[in-house]
């Protein structure tokens, strides 16, 4: 591809202030760092997103496929005014959130992908993303959609989002919901937490390496279990018992 054509295809980003890293103590007592990643770090994240494309529950497959595409697009300059934040505990990748500055006033929330479930890890990362749009970029509202019922509970219900159904969202053209400045200010005290600056030691660990998630969502190991208990968190509860009774484990 000629350099000239690449300069046409590659969007020119508008200036966006950086997201200042913060840290949150999660329910386990662990310290989670939420920080912005650079383009150069995207190849370190992609291998941890790819396996989730095959997790057919809670819309992990759809979200992971889209996130993979968005991260790759960001890495290879095919999306404009985008950013990526990650949540890490001791370097371990726990969540990825991303979005776009659609206009100087309006943000476009793209995805929240939690690699470690529960303990509000995804919710804290999402809150940081909203903080970036509202407080750091100074935008007036953020357009949001949810693929999964869990996302709907976390965003639409917890933040009491307004309907913007006349505006198709960039994700599939579905009706948008909006977080306005007023709604964000109402949620600020209860949902948007974290401290700055991040202690140097924590930040260094986060920057040193993006480590693989220790307990990512996985498809059930056993096909029988997959068909009969796809939401079984152990994946193979019944199989396990059978194995145990047969002395296999």
């Amino acid at each position: 591809m000629s350099a000239d054509l690449e300069s046409i295809l590659r969007p020119v980003d508008n200036p966006m202030p950086p997201f200042p890293a913060k840290h949150v103590t999660i329910a386990s007592g662990e310290e989670m760092v939420i920080r912005q990643v650079t383009r150069d770090e995207i190849p370190d994240i992609l291998p941890h997103v790819a396996p989730l494309i095959y997790v057919e529950r809670d819309f992990y497959d759809v979200v992971a496929a889209r996130v993979y595409s968005e991260l790759l697009s960001y890495y290879r300059y095919r999306i404009q005014d985008a950013y990526v934040l990650v949540a890490q505990i001791d370097g371990e990748l726990c969540a990825v959130v991303n979005g776009r500055m659609a206009t100087p006033e309006v943000g476009m929330s793209l995805h929240t992908l939690a690699m470690r479930r529960g303990l509000r890890i995804g919710a804290h990362a999402f809150a940081a993303k909203m903080e970036y749009h509202m407080d750091i970029m100074g935008q007036q509202e953020v357009l949001i959609v949810a693929e999964s019922p869990i996302g709907f509970r976390r965003w639409m219900i917890e933040y009491n989002l307004e309907k913007r159904f006349d505006v198709p969202h960039e994700l599939g053209g579905v009706p948008s919901w909006a977080l306005t400045k007023e709604l964000f200010d109402r949620a600020r005290a209860t949902l948007v937490v974290g401290r700055r600056p991040v202690p140097e030691e924590l930040l260094e660990k986060a920057h040193a390496a993006i480590l693989p998630p220790s307990d990512p969502p996985t498809p059930p190991e056993d096909l029988l279990a997959a068909t009969r208990s796809q939401y079984d968190s152990t994946g193979t509860a019944l199989i396990l018992q059978r194995w145990r009774q047969e002395g296999k484990v």
Binding site: V24, T25, I26, A27, S28, G29, E30, R117, G118, L119, R120, H124, T190, L191, V193, G194, R195, S233, T234, A237
Partner: peptide
């Protein structure tokens, strides 16, 4: 076979500045 498979701590659910959100 338990439903909840996440470790929690007093620090995380009671003492930390983020405990009221957690």
């Amino acid at each position: 076979f338990a439903h909840l498979q996440q470790e929690i701590s007093i620090e995380g659910i009671l003492d930390s500045p983020e405990a009221m959100t957690n």
